[in-house]
């Protein structure tokens, strides 16, 4: 790690102010479980690290503090009861030690695990150092996206993001130019030409809390993932699904996939196919993967994703 000054913020407002306008010279740290790995490999060499971990949590009713740890989310009775996908996603993430330190905000804003992104000696669209190294011939891309973007084929790493999108969560953001509340899904909007940063947050903008509103859709939600190694592993693919059934007819449904695209991937075709009809799990599973364009080394993720959609919907329909 390069030496840095350490600024501990009392609240998100102060932290955001300290970060804004400094570009890569200042970074925010919550639990530090992702940030420290990037600092150690010198992918980031900020002059200042702004510590959020002692900021006032200030989360109100129906809110999940951005500083809540994954372990706290997984164990929270209200979340378990009303947003089972979120609790499950948190429980399945990482290791017990990481879940005790890693936070909701950090999990949503963590950087991709693409090994080319994480090694400064390769060019990388996300790092702004050139073209994606994972796409061309000869690249090792077995864990990458099957719904790749033209300019980046990394796989989205977060467990929480698909789950939060599936239950319709919003994120409350703080910035000196004005606070705002975004749909969790908007956070990852790629835009037409791709985006370097992992989220659409403005420079210095911070997530203060996640806003959760109970709904029948959210209550009937789940999260499933598939790991190569069971002990801990980033998921080969994950599916967060939420289903609102009315006498066997699908009133509303959300199917959001992790690990298969540079951002959480909304299986819109499958959702559209299901909405207003009798639940047809097989058709949904087929539709979810229909548009997949796997890379040289990850075609196997396609049937896995289909199976996860099948599992999630089957669980929700019983």
């Amino acid at each position: 790690m390069k030496a840095f000054a350490y600024l501990t913020a009392d609240d998100f407002e102060a932290a955001s102010k300290a970060l804004a306008g400094k570009g890569p010279r200042a970074v925010a740290k919550a639990g530090g479980t992702d940030l420290l790995t990037l600092l150690k490999s010198r992918l980031l060499e900020p002059d200042e690290v702004v510590n959020l971990s002692r900021a006032k949590r200030g989360a109100g009713k129906g809110e999940l503090s951005a500083l809540a740890t994954l372990a706290e989310v997984a164990a929270d009775a209200w979340v378990k009861e009303n947003f089972p996908a979120v609790a499950k996603a948190a429980l399945e993430a990482a290791t017990p030690q990481v879940r005790n330190a890693g936070t909701v905000g950090g999990n949503l804003c963590q950087h991709t695990r693409c090994w080319y992104f994480r090694d400064a000696s390769y060019t990388c669209f996300k790092r702004g150092t050139g073209d994606c190294s994972a796409a061309p011939d000869g690249a090792e891309n077995r864990y990458h996206a099957i719904f790749p973007h033209k300019r980046c084929v990394s796989a989205h790493p977060s467990n929480l993001a698909p789950a939060l999108i599936a239950v319709g969560a919003k994120v409350a953001c703080v910035h000196p130019d004005g606070d705002r509340t975004l749909d969790a899904e908007i956070l990852y909007d790629e835009g037409p030409s791709g985006r370097r940063s992992d989220t659409i947050l403005r420079e210095g903008e911070l997530i203060r809390a996640v806003l959760l509103e109970p709904s029948p859709l959210a209550k009937r939600s789940t999260y499933v993932e598939l790991r190569e190694r069971q002990s801990f592993d980033f998921a080969l693919a994950s599916v967060a699904a939420a289903l609102d059934l009315d006498g066997g007819i699908v009133k509303d449904v959300r199917i959001v996939c992790g690990g298969v695209a540079p951002v959480p991937y909304r299986a819109t075709a499958a959702e559209n196919l299901l909405r207003g009809r009798k639940l047809d799990v097989e058709a949904a599973a087929r539709a979810a993967v229909a548009g997949a364009t796997p890379l040289s080394g990850n075609g196997y993720k396609v049937p896995i994703l289909g199976e996860l959609v099948r599992r999630a919907l089957t669980e929700l329909s019983s």
């Binding site: 350490y6 530090g32 420290l36 790995t37 290791t95 017990p96 990481v98 005790n100 330190a101």
Partner: peptide, 25 residues
């Protein structure tokens, strides 16, 4: 890098990877 647990300590009673915690914290 947080991926082995060999550095596990309790911080305020909970196990964490001390390689991913800054001492100032």
């Amino acid at each position: 890098h947080g991926a082995c647990g060999g550095c596990t300590v309790f911080l305020d009673g909970k196990p964490v990877n001390s390689c991913l915690v800054l001492a100032v914290d």
